[in-house]
Amino acid sequence: MNTPNPARIRAADADRERVAQTVQTAGSEGRLTLEEVEQRLSRVYAAKFTDELAALTTDLPRPAPPRPGFPLTRDALRRHPALRVHLAVAVAVAVLLIVRWAVLGAGFFWPVFPLFWLAVSLFVHARVRSLRERAGTAVPY
């Protein structure tokens, strides 16, 4: 009786699609010829185990890790209540400064300077939060 190797793991459709995307990207970058892309893609979709898929991309460079994006997002505001409070305070101060400028009738828009520093403080706060979260040292507040 033929027993399968227990160390081998069956490949899922998502695994095949991920490897197919890597092969297609390598082809579009000129790392593989059109014939190589076609051959590898046919082998990708015929693969039954993950080790067969891994063998198709061993000679290709690994994709670069994703760069950190804009730190102040809705998701970040949901995860960190302190960011929501900081944003609310910044908006309230900004409104007060703009109203004061409008009431006083000053010609020069002087609130631009404190508004700039409010924005900088908010973005730095969000960036520090995202870096701590990525490092696994997120502070609960």
Rank of each mutant, 00 (worst) to 15 (best):
P114S: 03
L60I: 05
R100W: 11
A7F: 15
R67A: 15
R10Q: 14
A64D: 14
S121C: 06
R100G: 10
F113R: 00
P6N: 04
V93C: 02
L53K: 05
R132D: 14
G136C: 06
L115H: 00
V103L: 08
D51G: 05
L118H: 02
L83C: 04
D13R: 15
F109C: 00
L32T: 05
E38P: 03
N5E: 13
W101E: 02
E52M: 05
T25G: 12
E29A: 11
L83F: 02
T58R: 12
T57A: 10
A20L: 07
Q21H: 15
G136Y: 10
V99A: 02
N2V: 10
L96Y: 02
S130R: 13
E38H: 13
V37M: 09
L77E: 00
L118N: 02
L96E: 03
G105C: 06
L53W: 05
P61V: 07
P66D: 05
V37H: 05
L118Y: 00
V103Y: 01
V89A: 06
R129L: 10
R40V: 08
D51L: 03
D13G: 07
L87N: 01
E38D: 15
A94G: 12
G69S: 12
P66V: 12
A135E: 14
L53A: 06
D15K: 07
P65H: 09
V103A: 06
R100L: 15
T3S: 11
L77K: 02
P65Q: 12
A55R: 09
W117R: 03
L115G: 01
A92G: 05
L41E: 14
L34G: 13
L60A: 10
W110Y: 04
T57M: 04
R78Y: 04
